[in-house]
Nucleic acid binder design. Structure first.
Length: 117
RNA sequence: GGACUUCAUUAUAUGACCGCGGGGCUGGAAACAGCCAUGAGGAAAGUCCGAGCAUCACAGAGCAGGAUAGCUGAUAACGUCAGCCGAGGGCGACCUUAGGGCUAGUGCAACAGAGAUAUACCGCAGCUUCAUGCUGUAAGGGUGGAAAGGCGAGGUAAGAGCUCACCGGAUCGCAGGUGACUGCGAUGCCAUGUAAACCCUAUCCGAUGCAACACCGAUUGGUGCGGAGGUCAACGCGUCUGCUCGGCGCGCUUCGUUGAAAGGUGGCUUGAGCGCAGCGGCGACGCUGCGCCUAGAUAGAUGGUCAUACGCGACAGAACUCGGCUUACCGAUGGAGUCCCUGU
RNA sequence: GUGGGUAUGGCUUAGUUGGUUAAAGCGUCGGAUUGUGGUCCCGAAGAUCGUGGGUUCGACUCCCACUACCCACC
């Protein structure tokens, strides 16, 4: 996958994660914690963290899927609004697997867009 | 009708739209786009056993260490499973069972008790004495988890397997059974418990694990580390700082070292496979025939929204692959069987 | 994937060749001292020894299974 594609890139490096935890702007809700930072490039990047505290493998998988789905809906809205591109890291919390993706989507719209613009 | 026992099966379903993984087809130089079917479990879990597979080691034998422990069978193998035997529980269907050896040796057994692996405190009886002492005995008392098998009768000075019947255990013989063992008879009462204490006996075990391992690619060069140089002119990051300026370091060049560790591909899913039928076997299971192909990711694919139905959906997510075991779990359905109550 | 360890009063630790009663410090409570509080002194309460089975006459200790936490290696 290159920067020319429409989709986002998955953050894999531990260096990128720790950099975002240090330098990123944090947005806290009851469903997730989000770290954002502006980046140069043509697409957004996404990383999801589901720690041991979230629960067993099923719960961790579910929270990862929900966040990814919400972000899939959220991303085109973001691209229309601004020309800037960002790195995102979402950290799941213990309540995340019981929620619906629409709920997380609305939380993203409310909290993140207002913060970035 | 109630109370159970046991063996299986199943684990929300259907449709629409959007999205993900690998696969196939079409278009395209490629990037990619479109279409098609397909995509988590009974435990995928815990990692407690046993194998396959791979690499290394290995003439043969033994020691050490570990595992297992009724018998017969099943199996690739097992600590698993089936049937049976013994023991225990339940009125019963049925369930549970680490179930070799203390007569190979060593160790341990607190407190209590007279005495704990050998004894005589209170007793009982005989002899004797002022008091008491000596001898015999182990029925009774009390202690304890355990006191020379239990109970009754005979017997006796009082007693005792001293003798006898029954029960229990041991040894020997005979019969039945592949065998564990069971039945009968004779002898005859000889010594507690603990080997999930050391240990002994029998059987088994080479080590490491798919991050194994194999291949690709090589000085025109990859990874990490270190030295020297360069430049902050420009840009980014880090650091000094609350901020700005500025400095230093990295990204640049070069030298030395590291020498496949890094990256990619394979391993990676057709297998002791699954389903159905027939045959053999009490059964675990085996044989034959027909049919089927059913995840293969690599920061890790199954999700979302809407609608309908009901009982409103538990435990839970493949990571090389199988056979078990163990643990978690809302329920639903079916087969077989037992006991009790009522009616005919 | 492989291997190892820990769990004991509210907290931090002792204790296990199996033997009656599980020890200590801090903390808590009560008393004494002080004009009051602290320090000091005296006393008390507080533990199903992580959970569930088993072996044994008897288990914190031995064996098995499970739960939670921690660590190491590739």
């Amino acid at each position: 996958m290159s920067d020319f594609s429409k989709k986002y890139i998955v953050i894999k490096n531990n260096r990128d994660f720790s950099f975002l935890f240090k330098k990123g702007e944090s947005i806290v809700t009851f469903a997730f914690v989000c770290y954002v930072r502006e980046r140069r490039g043509r697409c957004n990047r996404l990383g999801i963290v589901t720690g041991k505290k979230v629960g067993n493998a099923v719960k961790r998988n579910r929270s990862r899927r929900i966040i990814r789905e919400a972000f899939r809906l959220f991303e085109p809205v973001l691209k229309e609004k601004t020309q800037k591109r960002y790195d995102f890291v979402f950290v799941a919390r213990s309540k995340t697997p019981e929620l619906k993706s629409t709920k997380i989507y609305s939380l993203m719209m409310k909290n993140i867009l207002s913060k970035l613009s």
